[in-house]
């Protein structure tokens, strides 16, 4: 029996020990880093608040979870994926731009384009219509130009001077 340890095995075990210890050695994520991710998730209990701003206990636990995952070396996207895998896409603050979530984004754009189309149609129809007839003004009646009687009287008085 050979009494020496295979250097390769030794090296491998050292590497493994170091790798296992790495997360612990890595600096603990700051609250701001946790908040940065939490902002993109929904509070599980109250409606419409994001996870960052909610002060309930459940949310504290969720934020601790984010902190643990970040400490383990998860990237922001990986943390979000971790939550999606467990709670579905409804944990996200912003609807995903794919699948059903895409519908949320597309319809307003379609609506706006339809509006622009309608506007173009209306403007086109109106401006192509018969040339505008002069606006009839009843004799003696005050005009509709947004000029009040007082001003009108003044103008007429001034005109007499010429």
């Amino acid at each position: 029996m050979k009494k020496y340890v295979n250097p390769l095995i030794l090296l491998l075990s050292v590497v493994m020990v170091v790798l296992a210890a790495l997360p612990a050695l890595a600096q603990e994520p700051s609250m701001d880093e946790v908040n940065h991710v939490a902002r993109k998730l929904n509070c599980p209990t109250c409606q419409s608040l994001n996870l960052e701003d909610c002060r309930t206990q459940t949310c504290d636990q969720w934020r601790d979870q984010i902190k643990d995952l970040l400490a383990e070396g998860y990237s922001e996207q990986e943390v979000l994926d971790w939550f999606i895998a467990r709670f579905g896409v409804e944990v996200l603050q912003e609807p995903p731009r794919e699948g059903h979530g895409l519908l949320a984004w597309l319809l307003p754009i379609v609506g706006l384009l339809a509006g622009v189309g309608w506007l173009a149609f209306v403007l086109n129809r109106w401006s192509k219509a018969a040339p505008p007839e002069p606006v009839p003004i009843e004799s003696g009646a005050p005009t509709d130009f947004g000029v009040d009687d007082e001003t009108l009287r003044k103008i007429e008085e001034d005109l007499k001077g010429f």
């Binding site: 993109k40 419409s48 896409v89 409804e90 603050q93 912003e94 609807p95 984004w105």
Partner: peptide
């Protein structure tokens, strides 16, 4: 309608 609740938050 889709059987899949999607939340629309402030960023949207």
């Amino acid at each position: 309608l889709l059987g899949n609740k999607i939340v629309v938050g402030p960023p949207f």
